[in-house]
Amino acid sequence: MLILNDISKTFNPGTVDAKLALNHVSLTVNDGDFITIIGANGAGKSTLFNAVCGSFVTDTGTIFLDGKNITMLAEHKRARVIGRLFQDPMRGTAPDMSIEENLSLAAGEGGWLSHMSLRNRREFRERLALLGMGLEDRLKQPVGLLSGGQRQALTLLMATYHPPKLLLLDEHTAALDPGTARKVLELTASIVRENGLTCLMITHNMQDALDLGNRTIMMGAGEILYDLSGPTREKATVQSLVRLFSDASGKTTASDRMLLGLDLEADTPDEEDRMDEEEPKKEKKGKKNKGKKKKK
């Protein structure tokens, strides 16, 4: 369980460039949660991940992971229990080194002076075969020769080699072509499912944000604007998210939220009436939702 308690971060404090990147954010992520995070550029999504990973120490607040206070823990020590993927497929692997050498570091077995054993290699080959990219026959090749998709898949494998307590995915398919992105996303979903990982995923794809996981968070101006889960989330559609999204920079009013059907859990006739009055669009959304449910 990840608990963020009132964390804030200001970059360049006390200067004209001061930017409040995280504004007293509190968030509880339950074990097994798969949360998708959406929000405009500069909303604070990646900064939130950086705070959790320990790229910087937050100005205020505390961070608990699995009952331990990690607020002040060094980045590389947190990495033991937190796996992270970036948008840039080049960031997660060492290009000059071979696939097996990269995996060997990720596996991190043995003491400082231990060598890679045959048993290690066999396991690397088995794990790589699961990616379905033919990498299992290229153990000795430098990672720099792989395509972006292959590198991202390898990074995913490395980040989850020992199932982490928390997996952070920072738009990890955004730099890939649509076909490869789909494949890496499916791979991600299956690895998360099989290991029962707790996962946060930043995405700009609204469909993915709703299809994957069990919770969706929208961020804006360093705050969590919406936290959708359960029936509310099931009712939400891509259109409603996009609408929320475009409003996120400005002020969102209660009527906006009603418009989007987010406060409509209770089927009080009062609200139903209002909805009918306001927009015929609403009905369309309802139909779409029903269609989706049937699919599932």
Binding site: R80, M90, G92, D96, L105, A106, M158, A159
Partner: peptide, 18 residues
Amino acid sequence: LAIHATGSNADMVRSSSI
């Protein structure tokens, strides 16, 4: 390997908890 990786990609070393 960790020393080699530090020269190749320090981020990756950090995420390997080194």
